[in-house]
Nucleic acid binder design. Structure first.
Length: 554
DNA sequence: CGCGTTTGACCTGCGC
DNA sequence: GCGCAGGTCAAACGCG
């Protein structure tokens, strides 16, 4: 499960559990918590709560404590004490049974602040105690309202997640069926067409749902999905003869048969090996482009690259450099680096393909991006207007509350998602769905978190040098965190309540601020959230490994 | 000497 | 068929 963000957010049970619907135990804990909290009425009669407390704390506290209090005596200290104990219970509930760190007191309730600091004044001044009591009640009531609201939101998200899961399962089953049909029947053109038409029929029925499913799944699941995407892509290029597509794939893979698959020229839909080939080819076609401001000639993304070419591209005085991943022999990942013609401070890095080797943590974010973006693009995989609309809707559905921009482009030769990290954020977009962005078709913009400018504001931490590694580890773990975390993570309370998180965030922020490449990586990790709401998402690299080890039979 | 970069040549797809 | 543009190759070159 997610370590970084999940761990950090767990300190705030409202937010962490809110988005932890995927983990059943946590979900259960959360709802139990909410039940308790919903039932938690501020005691009109403190005596009643004291009785309750007496029952619950009898085993741990001295039995003589309560008996020392005179019956008719107005004991503010006792009331205060009871409140403290009640607050302790709240804290324990907050911490999901675990002792909350001291910083929790500062965040979850102002009540706790009062409690902690007002012991003395309570003894000195009973009137102020009543006022504080009332304020505490008000705050608690507000918290309860907020909690209920979040609870409802949580339920909505759970429903959405369940919906997506169902769609995913349905799609998977359908694909398995199709594959079996293909294997059972020798692949003739007619039969292939039959399968395709059936698939098309299915697409028409399920496509809006299918495009909602961005989870990168492990091994075969993923392969099947992408395989479908590949055929969908072929189908949608109906103006291009199929052999043309295959020819192109063969051309792309043949120069490096070791890297791109030894059987790359074998036509798709051949029983036995259709998945890997089409997966490889299709995944390679999908591209992730990152626009970030950087003076460096190339953003550092944790991988080792070897330059293998440079070309002057039309319409841009800046040359385009071609790099190949050299972290493993035959790694198919390549990237192009080019400065923006309009603004040379903007570095455009385009990634293509999936790594076939384990990645260092610093590289996993970007690696996740390529895979996630490929999944995202190819899950829609439709250069047609419908497909783009689905992707757009999808992106908006997934990221309804973010500030940066991801652009899905179908005009490019390959489906490309562009993460634009150069725009100024609009803070108002953070909690509200963004207004439609005027964008020349067929490009659609979707909000995206993780801009360099926005992060310091969001996290609000002092900047100091931290290792890039830590920042990227955060990114990586973001990538494996639950869907929707990006909504809650920049919560201003986090920095107060979680010193450890604040440190981590500071590290990330510092790294991001010091080097735009980490902004890119962070954005990459967030991108992977799109497809990261899956237990396997944390092992995106292993997914790649699974895919590619099966592909790269060297 | 090994490794990475540079750079011109070459291949392929695509539009006219 | 031709030219253009994108992408890749590989020999030459530079550097540590």
């Amino acid at each position: 499960m997610d370590k970084g963000w999940g761990l950090a957010l767990e300190s705030d049970p409202v937010t962490s559990n809110f988005f932890a619907a995927k983990t059943s135990s946590k979900t259960a804990a959360f709802f139990r918590l909410n039940q308790q909290r919903d039932m938690f009425q501020f005691p009109v009669s403190l005596a009643g709560s004291r009785d309750d407390r007496r029952g619950t704390s009898a085993s741990s506290s001295s039995p003589s404590d309560d008996t020392r209090i005179p019956v008719d005596e107005v004991d503010f200290f006792s009331d205060e004490k009871s409140r403290v104990i009640d607050d302790d219970r709240v804290k324990k509930e907050h911490g999901d049974g675990e002792p909350a760190p001291a910083s929790d007191l500062d965040v979850n309730t102002g009540l706790l602040l009062l409690t902690a600091g007002s012991d003395q004044s309570t003894v000195d001044d009973g009137v102020s105690s009543d006022m504080e009591d009332r304020r505490a009640k008000d705050e608690l009531a507000q918290l309860q309202v907020e909690l209920k609201r979040m609870n409802a939101e949580n339920q909505k998200l759970k429903d959405m997640l369940s919906h997506v899961n169902n769609n995913y399962t349905a799609l998977q089953m359908h694909l398995v069926t199709l594959m079996q049909q293909q294997r059972n029947r020798p692949g003739t053109e007619h039969q292939v067409q039959e399968v395709k038409s059936e698939e098309k029929k299915y697409d028409e029925e399920v496509m809006p749902l299918r495009t909602l499913d961005l989870r990168p799944s492990g091994g075969a699941e993923r392969a099947e999905i992408v395989s479908t995407h590949s055929t969908s892509e072929e189908r949608t290029r109906s103006e291009t003869p199929q052999n043309n597509v295959e020819k192109r794939i063969g051309r792309e893979e043949s120069p490096e048969s070791e890297s791109w698959g030894p059987n790359s020229k074998i036509p798709k839909l051949i029983p036995g090996k259709p998945i890997d080939q089409s997966t490889e080819a299709t995944m390679r076609k999908a591209r992730v482009s990152v626009r970030a401001r950087s003076e460096a000639p190339m953003i550092t993304d944790g991988c080792q690259w070897r330059k293998y070419g440079q070309k002057m591209a039309k319409g841009n005085p800046c040359p385009r450099a071609y790099y190949r991943c050299t972290m493993a022999v035959g790694c198919p990942v390549r990237k192009q680096v080019q400065r923006c013609a309009d603004d040379r401070t903007i570095l455009i890095t385009t990634y293509e393909g999936n790594h076939n080797h384990p990645l260092p943590p610093a590289a996993m974010a970007m690696a996740s991006t390529t895979a996630a973006a490929a999944s995202m693009l190819l899950s829609g995989s439709m250069p047609s207007a419908d497909g783009i609309m689905n992707q757009n809707l999808l992106a908006r559905a997934i990221l309804p509350c973010s500030s940066s921009m991801a652009t899905i482009s179908a005009s490019a030769p390959f489906p490309t998602v562009t993460l634009d990290l150069t725009h100024s954020p609009n803070p108002l977009q953070f909690r509200t769905p963004p207004p439609p962005q005027p964008q020349p078709p067929p490009q659609f913009q979707v909000p995206f978190p993780g801009q360099p400018q926005s992060l310091p504001q969001v996290f609000g931490q002092p900047l100091y040098n931290q290792s890039k590694f830590s920042g990227l580890q955060l990114s990586q773990e973001m990538g494996s965190s639950q869907l929707g975390h990006q909504h809650k993570v920049p919560h201003p309370q986090l920095q107060q309540q979680q010193p450890s998180l604040a440190d981590t965030v500071s590290a990330a922020t510092a790294a991001i601020t010091n080097d735009p490449s980490f902004t890119a990586a962070l954005a990459a990790a967030i991108t992977s959230i799109i497809s990261g709401a899956h237990p396997n998402s944390s092992s995106n690299t292993s997914n790649n490994n699974n895919n590619n080890t099966s592909n790269n039979r060297q």
